[in-house]
């Protein structure tokens, strides 16, 4: 199928982009890797596409010691290749390297991925576990939204019309942190049918487990509840069948195992 007829804008500043996005039927485009298929299936029928790839304001990266900030337009491939600051152990790079296929990673962006809010998205799950914040921009000022509160449902976020995600801030965990991330895919590069990220960060008192690919927003289990044995029960309300819940629990067990090993490793 072919997309509906639409106007195509390439603004140079956030202010311009915001004005354009305020027009009837306008839609932002990051890398176009999720929007593109939606256009082709005519699931999305925008009157106007506002491409964000030319906005320098969405491209900066910063390592401020206690947190990394990545511009929303940072493509997965830049993270995969280590062209952006990373957390210890190349955590972000390894996540990026297993998103989709290289061609998709070249264009697809971290910001676009979060805004799209596909329940199976890697960043949604992993950045949630890392306690990331979404920095948004509007002409009236921006917001800083914790990822846990950013996604309200499958393909739904708290973004208001015209509000643009400018950057993502990822707090740096303490030196003895442990990280685990495991996902199950039918084929490498396909969306996962089970995924779990675990952050053990005693320095900041964090023990967090995030289950993705649930069909809805990621399920966050903190503290004592962050236990693989609790996963099947915790997912009862998520609309998953017993087989999917079982698989999620197995993957959670493997992610927890990874995180504990990493944690022991940092202390040794």
């Amino acid at each position: 199928m072919k997309p509906v007829d639409f106007a195509f804008d390439q603004p140079a500043t956030l202010a311009q982009a915001s004005t354009m996005l305020a027009t009837e039927g306008a839609r932002a485009m990051g890398g176009g890797q999720s929007l593109g298929p939606m256009l082709n299936f005519r699931v999305a029928r925008p009157a106007r596409i506002v491409a964000l790839h030319g906005l320098a304001e969405c491209q900066g990266v910063e390592d401020a010691g206690d947190a990394l900030t990545l511009g929303a337009s940072t493509p997965h491939a830049a993270i995969e290749d280590g062209r952006t600051p990373d957390l210890p152990g190349g955590i972000l790079s390894r996540i990026a390297a297993n998103i989709a296929y290289r061609a998709v990673r070249t264009r697809g962006t971290m910001g676009g991925s979060l805004c799209h809010a596909d329940p199976g998205a890697d960043w949604l799950c992993t950045l949630g576990a890392l306690g990331a914040l979404v920095l948004t921009w509007t002409p009236r000022g921006g917001r800083m939204v914790p990822l846990s509160g950013f996604v309200t449902g499958a393909f739904r976020t708290v973004l208001q019309p015209g509000e643009i995600v400018q950057a993502i801030r990822i707090p740096r965990p303490g030196a003895d942190f442990g990280w685990g991330y495991v996902k199950a895919c039918r084929k490498p590069g396909e969306f996962a049918h089970a995924m779990c990220a675990v952050l053990l960060d005693p320095t900041h008192g964090v023990r967090r487990m995030v289950i993705g690919a649930t069909g809805g927003p990621p399920v966050v289990l903190e503290g004592d509840r962050a236990d693989p044995a609790a996963v099947e029960g915790a997912l009862k309300g998520a609309g998953l069948g017993p087989v999917e819940r079982r698989m999620q629990a197995v993957i959670a067990g493997r992610a927890m195992e990874q995180a504990m090993q990493a944690h022991r490793g940092t202390r040794a």
Binding site: A184, E244, R246
Partner: peptide, 11 residues
């Protein structure tokens, strides 16, 4: 033979 079918049969 999918992962789902195998796990389902085992369960």
């Amino acid at each position: 033979i999918t992962p789902h079918r195998i796990v389902s049969a085992l369960m």
